[in-house]
């Protein structure tokens, strides 16, 4: 595995009106690394991810993706703001998966996945469709290409959303609470897809409350509170022996909410080991309709 720096955030700040939401975030993510971002509601996790994808613009500090400054271009001793087109080009390598899926409801599953490759790279439609089918197979939804998002379960929709992001061949994937809108029994199938993706070496930043997933998959857990990074480290240490009182407090609440015993939980038992298991269980159930 290389140690190329994929993302570097330096002193990123952001406020909404009078409310400081990010108060100096420094974070470096290297290629192939899976970073789980945890922390209480309102701590600024989503805002940070949205800054990485330029859906928000930081007020202070800066972000670099693969050593390229986001949103600005150095020219001599000036810093020039990028055009929409240039921002779109920077976003091309970054995939984002949203809490509420945000699939395009008026397009079929296949069209959802082919839309970006067809529009952005002028990839011939036939080729884009072939790639899309491969991706749908990877997330266990090969037969759902002609369905509309509204006809799928939440778990299936989120897996389509992951396939849709992967269609632009990103080198960095951002996940903002990808399983929070799902019924508990559908969480496993989505986490299984993400786990496979991590095993294949994708660089990922995942905002999640799933302590089990974080412990098994993350290389590093970053704990945020009040717009700053309070503590970070490998999951084994951070989850079982957090040093900061606020981390302890938060973890106690998260594990309580999930109904499991404290940290070393049975959470993993609920998630299928591979995508294929999720798929067969899924099609067996939906095939009845």
């Amino acid at each position: 595995m290389t140690t190329e720096t994929v993302l570097r955030a330096v002193g990123v700040t952001k406020r909404f009106g009078d409310l400081p939401v990010l108060r100096g975030i420094d974070l470096t993510v290297t290629a192939g690394e899976v970073v789980c971002l945890m922390g209480p509601s309102g701590s600024g996790k989503s805002t940070f991810l949205r800054c990485v994808n330029q859906l928000e613009r930081p007020d202070g500090g800066y972000l670099e993706v693969r050593s390229e400054l986001l949103g600005w271009k150095r020219r001599g001793d000036t810093l020039r703001e990028l055009s929409h087109r240039e921002i779109a080009r920077q976003r091309r390598g970054i995939g984002m998966v949203f809490q509420r899926f945000n699939l395009f409801p008026h397009l079929t599953v296949l069209q959802n996945v082919t839309e970006a490759p067809v529009r952005t790279r002028a990839l011939p439609r036939a080729e884009a469709e072939r790639t899309a089918r491969e991706l749908l197979e990877r997330v266990g939804l090969a037969e759902k290409g002609n369905a509309y998002p509204g006809q799928l379960s939440g778990g299936q929709q989120q897996r389509v959303a992951i396939a849709r992001s992967l269609a632009t061949r990103p080198f960095l994937m951002l996940f903002d609470e990808p399983t929070s809108a799902l019924d508990p029994e559908l969480v496993g199938e989505v986490l299984a897809v993400m786990r496979t993706l991590a095993e294949q070496g994708m660089t990922m930043i995942v905002v999640t409350h799933e302590a089990g997933f974080a412990r098994d998959v993350a290389d590093r857990i970053v704990f945020m509170d009040g717009g700053v990074i309070v503590e970070e480290g490998p999951p084994a240490r951070l989850l079982s022996a957090p040093s900061h009182p606020r981390t302890k407090d938060f973890l106690a609440r998260v594990t309580a909410a999930h109904g499991g015993p404290p940290v070393p939980s049975t959470e993993t038992a609920r998630t299928p080991d591979t995508v294929d298991t999720a798929d067969t269980a899924d099609t067996a159930e939906k095939g009845q309709r």
């Binding site: 994808n53 859906l55 929409h84 087109r85 779109a88 080009r89 976003r91 091309r92 970054i94 995939g95 984002m96 949203f98 509420r100 945000n102 699939l103 395009f104 839309e115 970006a116 529009r119 952005t120 959303a161 849709r164 992001s165 632009t168």
Partner: peptide, 13 residues
């Protein structure tokens, strides 16, 4: 969220 998803996919405006 529809606009944001489309932007995050780098679709032209």
């Amino acid at each position: 969220g529809q606009t944001e998803a489309a932007l995050s996919l780098a679709l032209p405006s």
